[in-house]
């Protein structure tokens, strides 16, 4: 059997809205991926520790609190420190268009805002996963 893509779906920050995270987890499951969901209010340190232990290929983070400019790059930075920056990192949620170029420059491979179809996200993962 082909190795399934392993994805950590994480909710950094303090907002309690996980509808989006659960929806994307379900869509990735239906696309044949192994999704590790770690629940609400995760610190970047917790997310990276889980990603290392689970040996995931991808981290997807859903954030609606407005703290994306701090939390998402922090995850990339911690991954780099561990030598694990071959993990594909993407974000989603209510993130202003103006913030997206800055996030990409800091190593977030893509940012999906409301209106993105799950098919687009799945295609993005399949085409960009680095270490699968």
């Amino acid at each position: 059997m082909e190795k399934p893509i392993r994805v950590l779906v994480a909710k950094p920050g303090l907002d309690g809205h996980d509808r989006g995270a659960k929806l994307i987890a379900r869509a990735l499951r239906d696309a044949g991926m192994e999704v590790i969901y770690t629940g609400l209010r995760q610190s970047p340190e917790q997310i990276v520790a889980a990603a290392i232990q689970e040996d995931v290929d991808v981290i997807g983070m859903s954030i609606l609190s407005g703290a994306h400019n701090h939390l998402l790059p922090k995850v990339v930075e911690l991954l780099k420190a561990q030598g694990a920056d071959d993990i594909l990192v993407f974000g989603g949620g209510v993130i202003p268009e103006d913030d997206i170029p800055g996030l990409k420059a800091q190593g977030i491979a893509e940012v999906f805002t409301p209106g993105t179809t799950t098919t687009e996200t799945i295609e993005f993962i399949k085409n960009n996963v680095k270490r699968h």
Binding site: M1, P4, A25, R26, L28, R29, D30, A31, G32, M33, E34, V35, I36, Y37, T38, G39, Q42, E45, Q46, A49, A50, Q53
Partner: peptide, 22 residues
């Protein structure tokens, strides 16, 4: 469990063990 249909799965046991991650 892994889905017998898609081969995918949602592994959610870590949710109850969040404090142990670090």
């Amino acid at each position: 469990p892994t889905s017998p249909y898609s081969g995918g799965s949602i592994l959610g046991d870590r949710i109850r063990m969040q404090d142990l991650a670090l």
